[in-house]
Design a binder for these strands. Sequence first.
DNA 1: AACCAGGACGTGA
DNA 2: TCACGTCATGGT
Length: 234
Amino acid sequence: MSGTVKRIGDIYQKLYQLYGPQGWWPLIDCKGPKPVKTGAVEGYHPLNYDLPVQRNHIYEIIVGTILTQNTAWLQANTALHNLNDLKALVPEKLLKLDDEILKSAIRPAGFLNQKAIYLKKVTQFFIELDGETPSRKELLEVKGVGNETADSILLYAYKQPEFVVDTYTRRLFSHLGLSHVEISYLKLKNLFENSLPRDVPVYQEYHALIVEHAKRYYNKKPHGVGDPLSRLSI
DNA sequence: AACCAGGACGTGA
DNA sequence: TCACGTCATGGT
C-alpha cells in the first residue's frame, strides 16, 4: 500500500510537470490575475486559489457542475453562456425563469428535462444556505447531486478538501494498475485522500490534471494508448 | 456514422 | 449493495 501512496504522489508531480497549473474551476467573468483560455474555452485562472470570491461565482460553479454531468465541458459552457445572456446566472433570477425558456437555454448541454429540474432544486438549496458552506451529506440529499457533483461543489465552489473522482480517474488509475475499474466511488476517493496531503489546491489541481491528461489518452478505446505515464508505474 | 462527453436516478434482483 | 436502462445534444 505504501507503494500505491508513493505512486499517487509521483503521478501528481508528473502530471503537473507535463501540463502545469490548470486554474479550475473556470469562471465566465474571471477577474483573476491572469485568466487564460484552454482550447475554445476561457475563464481558467492558474495559480489563483482565491477564487471563487463572490456569491455569484460560487453559484456559477454549482450550475456548471450540473450542466457538465456526462457532458463535454464545451457544451456545458455554451449552456452557461446562454444563461448568462439571459442574466439568469443569479439564483433568484434562475428560479423565476420559465421552464421552457430554461430548457432551451441549457439545450446544448443535453439531458435538458432532468437538468432543468436539478438546476432549480440546487438553486433553492443554495439560497437556503444563506452563505453557509453545505455538508457533503446535505448536498447528496439534493436531487441531481451525486457523489462527483457534491465533491466538485465542495472542492471548487467552497474550497473544502474533498477529492473528486470521475470516470477518467477510474480509467487512468485502473490502467496504471493502482485500482480496478469496478472500484466504488468512495473507495477510490479514499485512496486519493489517504495518499495525499489534505490540501485544497493539490486536490483541485490533481483532478483537473487527470481530466486534461485523460482527454488526450483515455477518450477512445482502447484506453491508455500512448500514455507516457504507463511506463512509469509497473 | 457510430461513439461518447468533467453523471445521476429509478428499478429490480 | 449492485447491475442495468434511461436521459439528449453536439463534436469527433
